[in-house]
């Protein structure tokens, strides 16, 4: 089956991103296809490469990056949600005149159309939120 994943909460405060990760990982292991993982609302914070959790805790964004790399996943951060929360890639940082960028490897910034398209392409869109 083709799944798309929507994550609406950031890392650590809510379990949504953890549950989405475990679901995605299990779905891939069972031979299903992941069309796209889309991060919206505070979910865009999952795409930071500046997170430094304690060593005995999981690293949510690194874990997504690794899974994305292993399975060539599309990990998409909504551009409007990302911009208002200070999540910028190199291009966006330059365009906005900011001195830094903070997007983790494997994540891409794109538009909300990618979320609607994910719903159209997949057999099931699974929403992880609060």
């Amino acid at each position: 089956m083709k799944f798309s994943i929507l994550i609406n909460e950031g890392p650590y405060t809510h379990q949504a991103s953890d549950s989405a990760y475990h679901f995605t990982e299990a779905a891939l292991r069972a031979g299903h296809e992941i069309v796209r993982v889309f991060f919206y609302h505070d979910g865009v914070y999952n795409g930071t490469r500046l997170s430094v959790p304690p060593q005995d805790d999981r690293n949510v964004s690194e874990r997504w990056s690794a899974l994305g790399q292993e399975h060539s996943l599309e990990l998409i951060l909504c551009v409007a949600a990302a911009q208002r929360r200070g999540m910028l890639d190199e291009d966006e940082a330059r365009r906005a005149g900011k001195d830094s960028n903070n997007i983790a490897p494997g994540f891409e910034i794109s538009g909300l159309g990618q979320l609607v398209d994910a719903g159209i392409q997949a057999d099931r869109l699974i929403v992880f939120g609060d």
């Binding site: 609302h41 409007a80 538009g111 909300l112 159309g113 979320l115 609607v116 398209d117 159209i120």
Partner: peptide
């Protein structure tokens, strides 16, 4: 496809309502 947007939160207090409406408006182009 038949898309249903379920809005459960008040307009203020959190950003869910505003960002939901943004998806609806962008999605209309599809």
């Amino acid at each position: 496809k038949k898309f249903l947007y379920v809005n459960r939160k008040p307009p203020h207090g959190s950003i869910y309502a505003l960002e939901s409406l943004e998806v609806v408006l962008i999605g209309a182009a599809f």
